[in-house]
């Protein structure tokens, strides 16, 4: 049977499926009449084999037996079920679920780390993350809400310094020094954003003074030695002196304010 005959027979199959008779097909493809006739006669005789059916007894009673035997059997292995031609679950849902799971894991682990970093103090591994997150918050907050944020950060810095001072570790001197500089910077930022008022100014300045005094008491000697050793390097010392000067200024302004309040 050549390719052309096969194509004609395929077309006849389509016509018959659409409801046309074999005669219509024979008429349409007259040149292949004999081949088509032979083919469909053979097909028709094959179709008569459909008459073969199982015995009546088997047809009627076998299902109960099959189900009872199936229920009695143990687990069957070795048969892999063939899945649907369009495996939606495998193609779409599964990758989507995996992606969602990875995304959620990443988000949860990051937010967990971020949450844990909020309790960290300078010198700890998570502290840089805490400061980065503070900077990020500063960048995204609207201007009118930044005053509260600066005040919150100032309080955080003071509590961090308190925590460091309570620790009996001499290596914390440098960290504290940097932290005190940060506290001063934060105080200035707070002033800029008007988050310091007559109600909280005294408390804040007291806290800052207390931190500085305790720092002086604890590390005063060490820093003096350092200053002598690093006679040429003024950076830390200058910073510290600057801070003291700043504190002095703050104290005097507070006294003035106190005076004016008492006059009133």
């Amino acid at each position: 049977m050549n390719k052309r005959t096969i194509k004609v027979i395929d077309k006849c199959h389509i016509l018959i499926k659409k409801g046309y008779s074999i005669d219509h097909c024979l008429e349409k493809f007259r040149d292949y009449r004999q081949e088509i006739k032979d083919y469909f006669t053979t097909a028709e005789s094959l179709n008569t084999l459909r008459a073969v059916r199982p015995g009546k007894n088997f047809s009627e009673n076998s299902l109960d037996l099959i189900i009872s035997r199936a229920k009695k059997r143990g687990k069957i292995t070795g048969i892999k079920p063939v899945h649907s031609a369009v495996p939606v679950r495998r193609l779409v849902l599964r990758p989507a679920m995996i992606f969602l799971l990875i995304f959620m894991l990443t988000v949860f682990s990051f937010s967990g780390t971020l949450f844990a970093s909020q309790e960290s103090i300078p010198g700890e591994a998570l502290y840089p993350l805490k400061r980065s997150f503070e900077n990020f918050r500063l960048n995204i907050y609207p201007e009118n809400l930044k005053d509260g944020l600066h005040l919150q950060f100032l309080n955080t810095r003071i509590s961090e310094a308190d925590a460091l001072l309570e620790e009996e570790n001499n290596d914390d001197a440098i960290l504290l020094e940097e932290l005190i500089i940060d506290i001063d910077k934060q105080y200035q930022a707070c002033k800029q954003y008007n988050c310091i008022n007559s109600g909280n100014e005294n408390i804040l300045l007291d806290s800052i003074d207390s931190v500085k005094n305790r720092y002086q008491k604890k590390y005063g000697n060490n820093t003096q030695n350092k200053d002598q050793n690093k006679s040429g390097q003024e950076q830390d010392l200058n910073g510290h002196n600057g801070m003291e000067q700043e504190t002095g200024k703050q104290n005097s302004s507070r006294q003035n304010k106190g005076g004016s309040n008492s006059h009133q």
């Binding site: 088997f58 076998s62 189900i67 069957i76 079920p81 495996p87």
Partner: peptide, 26 residues
Amino acid sequence: LSEDLVSEVFIRVYRNLRKTNLNERS
């Protein structure tokens, strides 16, 4: 023999069909 084999096929179908995601053709 055909009836025995048919029974065996349907025992397997019965035990596994609900675990599959088959359409008519598959």
